[in-house]
Amino acid sequence: MGGLLRREWQVLARNRAQVINPLAFLFLAVMLFAVGGPLEDNTRAQYGGAVLWLIVLLTNMLSLDALFRRDYDNGVLEQVVCGADVPFLVILLRIGMQWLSTGALVTLLAPFLCLLLGLPGHVTATAMLALALGSPAISLLGAVGAALTVGFSRGGILLGLLVLPLLLPVLIFGTSAINQEVAGITNNAQLYWLGFISMVALTIGPFATTAGLRISLQMQ
């Protein structure tokens, strides 16, 4: 376990583009939204939450497309499936790393993003909590799509098509949690739902991802 984790960390540390590029895209998207319209002074608080979640979803789609691609091409993935004691564990670690480099990072940066999006200050804590609870679902369900599309040289659009409809509840509850906080209404239910969706995703995601990778490996 320790050895497996160390490698994931080494790869992440040496492949900084994988962390930095999505992050740069994230801030670029914030700027585009701000310039493109819906963040006028009087509507900022109203749309800020939705824009935040949309950007997180899109950034994740870009990052997920690369999740298994290198290992699929160089043969590491087939070794995981045929050689590992528990392939499931290696794959879960990999998904965890993807979450660290997107979901967790965005959660930590949320105060900054809230500021840029013009959300009122008292929303920050809620936004962080909502992101922390909801973003694992994006990584876990997204990984299933990544596993199924890794065999196609241009899998990106198909990945989004497969995964984004399943992530609609995350968008709805995540946005709603922030909006309720802005309006000063209690939002416990939304947060519970986000946690619940992530739990469901944790239950089915890694198994489905492993199954999806087994399918994709046979396309080689």
């Binding site: 320790g2 160390r6 043969g75 087939e78 070794q79 004691d85």
Partner: peptide, 27 residues
């Protein structure tokens, strides 16, 4: 042990790191 056409070494890691990982994969 299976060795396919694909070499199964991570380009970013050195041989020591790659081989350590294969050991970990084996437990």
């Amino acid at each position: 042990l299976y060795q396919g056409h694909r070499i199964a070494l991570d380009e970013l890691l050195n041989p020591l790191e790659n081989l350590h990982w294969f050991g970990a994969l084996d437990g």
